[in-house]
């Protein structure tokens, strides 16, 4: 109850900080919005050119989905989690001057970066819509469920960001380690290769099912391009992974936050 009141008290600060980030990114350059749509599209063109040569223009996923659609839907989710967590990581540490001067609930900083990344995600969804239309994918009502996997990915990102931002205060160099980890995570998730590639290999499939990113990416693809609903087990695991990460993040953050000022 007390925590909730504090959160309400500082919600204007939260929206102010997000507003400032949005202003810097989108208002200062007219091309801001255009870039956040063009960037994933150009990336998609590059990757699909490379991979259509490698895989000889094969169809991807469970149905006849063109590679670039398969890639873009996966990359959109991955990019969101990657951006949210890597910008959050430094957020507490860079807020040191503020944290040492006034009382502010410190979780505001990673939370703000995650929400800002979510705003960027919404803009990059424009690219997804354009590609879906251009690729002749038919509209289905299942598509309207797209916010569910994205919101779950947001919950997961907030948890992971709280964990990472707390640890970064004590060990500055995990920023670099996490950068490498993110690249590995991209390749460990079926984003640029079809999941069917792994289906013969039991060990790899097991690892895949331990990879949280897999659930968000596949959930999003299922509703947006496969026109299927995930079964209840899949849904339960995705929800469970998100909430578990959030709880871990909150617990670690809470346990460490009083010591932050001593290390900044």
């Amino acid at each position: 109850m007390k925590y909730f009141q504090t959160f309400l008290k500082y919600r204007y600060l939260l929206s102010n900080l997000i507003g400032r980030d949005i202003k810097v990114k989108y208002r200062r350059s007219v091309l801001g919005i255009l870039w956040s749509v063009l960037n994933p599209l150009l990336m998609m063109v590059v990757i699909s050119t490379v991979f259509s040569v490698l895989f000889k223009g094969g169809k991807f996923g469970e149905t006849n989905i063109p590679f670039h659609v398969y890639y873009l839907t996966g990359a959109t989710v991955y990019n969101f989690i990657s951006e949210a967590t890597s910008t959050s990581m430094m957020s507490v540490f860079t807020a040191a001057p503020l944290i040492k001067k006034v009382y502010i609930p410190k979780y505001i900083f990673p939370l703000e970066k995650c929400l800002f990344a979510f705003v960027n995600l919404l803009f990059s969804l424009i690219a997804v819509v354009i590609v879906l239309l251009a690729s002749g994918i038919k509209f289905t009502f299942t598509m309207l469920l797209f916010p569910i996997p994205l919101l779950l990915a947001l919950v997961f990102s907030i948890g992971l960001s709280m964990l990472l931002s707390a640890l970064t205060v004590f060990f500055r160099d995990i920023v670099h380690i996490y950068g490498v980890f993110l690249t590995a995570w991209l390749y460990a998730t079926p984003i640029i290769y079809p999941i069917t590639l792994l289906e013969g290999n039991k060990k790899l499939m097991l690892i895949m099912h331990l990879n949280p990113m897999y659930y968000f990416v596949e959930f999003f693809r299922k509703v947006v391009i496969y026109n299927t609903l995930p079964n209840w087990q899949f849904t339960l695991v995705t929800v469970g992974v998100s909430l578990l990460m959030l709880v871990i993040g909150i617990l670690v953050f809470r346990q460490k936050q009083d010591k932050f000022v001593l290390y900044m």
Partner: peptide, 25 residues
């Protein structure tokens, strides 16, 4: 204690009043 925490010197006084006010909750 430390006045003007979070002032962004690139912003105007008007904007900073809102920003610093929000920092103070």
């Amino acid at each position: 204690i430390e006045l003007g925490a979070g002032f962004d010197m690139d912003l105007t006084a008007r904007e900073n009043i809102y920003l610093n006010g929000s920092v103070l909750g």
